[in-house]
Structure formats: C-alpha cells, structure tokens
Design a protein around this nucleic acid. Structure first.
Lengths: 190, 190
DNA sequence: GCTGTTACTTACTAATAAGTAAGTTACGGA
DNA sequence: TCCGTAACTTACTTATTAGTAAGTAACAGC
C-alpha cells in the first residue's frame, strides 16, 4: 500500500525479505543491509527502529501481496486450476532463487519472536490457508479438482508439500521439487 | 556410538539438539549452553572446538539414531504399518515439545552452513528418505499400503507433510498436525 | 612419587550485534 | 527568507558473540 512511497525504505524491506528467505532472520544484521545498500547502519534504524519492526513490516508486506493476489484473481476471472498453478509457481520460483517461503522461515524462528510478530505471522498463515482452501473448494465444485478430504485438510496437505518441498529441494536438489509438484497435481486432478 | 562415553559432552550434544529444534542454530550461543549446564563457555569449546563441530556432531547423532532405528525395526520384525506409525509418532512428539524436525531446522539454515555440515545434512536426508521409502514399498508389497505414485515420490509427499506439518502446528496449533496425520494415513491406507 | 592426560576454569580478545544521540543536508511551504 | 521536517551520517555505547591461551585439579599408569 504505502510501501512504494520511500525508495530506501522499500529497498530495505525487499532486501530484508530476501535475506530472511535465503539465510533466516537471525542470520542477517542491519550492518549487512547497510553494506548492501551503501547506507549507514543508523539509516536502517531510521526507517525500522528495531529489527522487530522490520520483521513486522515484512510479514505485513506478504499479507498485502496475497490480498492483492486474491483481488487480482477475482477480477481476471482466473479458473481455480489457473489460480492454483499460479500459486504453485511462486514456490517453484523460490526453489530457483534458493529461497524458502517466509512461512517456513518464520516457523523455524517462531520461538524467538516477540508476541506482535507471532500474531502477524498467524494472521498471514490463516489468510494464505484460507485463500488456497477457497480455490480448492471452488475447483471441486466446478469439477476441475477431485479429492475426498475436506477442502481445509486438502489445503494443509498441499501447503505442507509445497513449503517443505522447497526446503527439501534446497538440500537434495531442484528436481525433487518438480516431482513433488507433479505429484501434488495428480493428487487433486479430477 | 561413542556418544555415551563422556557425560558433559553428551549433555552439550543433547542440549544443542534441543536448542536447534526449538530456536534454530543461529539463535543459541555457547554461553546459553554453558549457563544451562553450569559449566563455563570454554568447557563447551573443549568438547566442540567450533560451533560447526557441534552442528556436525548433532547431524551425525541423528544419522546414528535412524540407523539404530532401522536395525531395531528389522530385528523386532515390525510390520511396515507399525514402522510408519512409529516414525510418524516421532513427529507428533516434536509438536508436543514445541520443536521442529532437524531437517526442517537445517533447511532454514542451509545457506549459512559450512560445506562439511551441508554434506552431512544431505547424508542424513538421503538416509531418512531411503528408510521411509523402503517401508512404504514393503507395505505396498504386503498389501497394507496403497498408492499410485512411486514409493520415492510418495515418500517425499509424506515427509513434506510431516516436516511442514510440525512447522505449521507451531503457528496454528497442535490440532492441525493431528488432522494432517490422519489425512496422511488415509492417503496411503489400502 | 613422578608423568601425562582428561576435563575442566580463569581470564582474556577481537568482531559484531542492536540501538541511540546529536549533528547535517536538502527541500518545500508560509 | 526563515522554519520545519524528512532522510540521512557521524560517532558512539553496551552486550554478546565465537574462540583462545594459560593455568589447575584429579586421577591412572608406570
């Protein structure tokens, strides 16, 4: 929303996202960000006073992204199948960039988070799960998906396949994610 | 193997495992371990000179655990169904202890690892995947499991469900893991 | 009874972490 | 033209990090 107002602030945010997905929250410092953007440590603190503020902004950014995605999918009248393909493609892109999804990254770090961040993460997860659940349910109704589980359970199966799929691919190689992707699609193919 | 020789060393190792699964590798320090065990920082370095050595020992420890488990399962002639139940129960225990599995934890931290640790992690993952694959294949042969994917692909689906299942449960609550567990079992039930 | 080894402690170091206070520069109104 | 604010930099502090060098106490073997 207001994210594009300030250039440096946006750059910090985007770099923060990248660093979390590539190295984890604990593994990067404000000094890393400052170095990469050719600004000083204190400039990062100017935009995000504490590291917790940056984390919060990153999670909020993803909530915004998925809300935007949901709206766009509605407007463009994408079929449930197309919606799901697009969603899965996001994970394939993560694999190519040697990243893991923020939800997985957040989970690994969950026990170290301040309450405010935990709450935002829960908000994000609930939103994303809800989004996929609606897509799966719609696809079942129009006959393009078939599964015997509830849409909610099928969503959890699919999401865990994707999230841990990118994690596994980091260790064992990209082709494992491709196999998982194909298997997921078979699982719900009508 | 030789792990039980030295008491303090074993305690450091076990505490290290716990800290990695609860907080992640980057989020704990030798000072944390020293404090908890009422020894000095330098004592931890005596047993594991660098943090990398501790990480390596932890991953090796899990390789040993799973090798032991494999041998035991063979000796006690557990059915594939019983073997899988036992394996899945390990993940349920993680959820109860508010931990995630080392493979998931290692994946989040993979890009920060020295090559030697990466290699050991790959060794662990390959071993565990191989173990589950054998169990699924055996279950299919004796008619207790049914699935259309290859045993390898089915293993990856199951493992990603479990690994990300415990991660999800950390954020959204334990009952989500229980639902995933039931759904997994339905998926492969003959 | 001396020697070596194991398992530590004491006492550090250098690097890096997050965070802050005070100053600077540029710019956009009123 | 002065004023305030935004977006920084300079110059710090304090805490914590991994890691080390040197010393010590207990004990086992010869």
């Amino acid at each position: 929303m207001a994210a594009l107002a300030n250039d440096t602030k946006t750059q910090i945010l985007e770099l923060g996202i990248q660093l979390i997905q590539q190295h984890g929250y604990q593994a990067f410092s404000y000094a890393d960000i400052a170095r990469a953007l050719h600004i000083k440590n204190a400039a990062v603190h100017y935009h995000f006073p504490a590291k917790e503020d940056l984390y919060l902004a990153i999670v909020q950014y993803y909530i915004d992204v998925y809300q935007h995605m949901a709206r766009q999918m509605n407007e463009t009248q994408l079929s449930p199948k197309q919606q799901l393909d697009r969603f899965i493609q996001r994970y394939a892109d993560l694999v190519d960039a040697n990243k893991i999804c923020i939800i997985g990254a957040a989970s690994a770090d969950y026990n170290n988070m301040p309450e405010a961040v935990k709450k935002k993460v829960t908000e994000l997860v609930d939103y994303v799960l809800g989004l996929v659940e609606k897509t799966l349910a719609a696809g079942k109704r129009n006959g393009s998906f078939a599964f015997t589980e509830t849409a909610k359970n099928q969503t959890m199966l699919l999401m865990t396949n994707l999230a841990a799929g990118v994690q596994l691919a980091r260790i064992t190689g990209k082709k494992d994610f491709e196999n998982i992707r194909k298997s997921i699609l078979k699982t719900i193919q009508a």
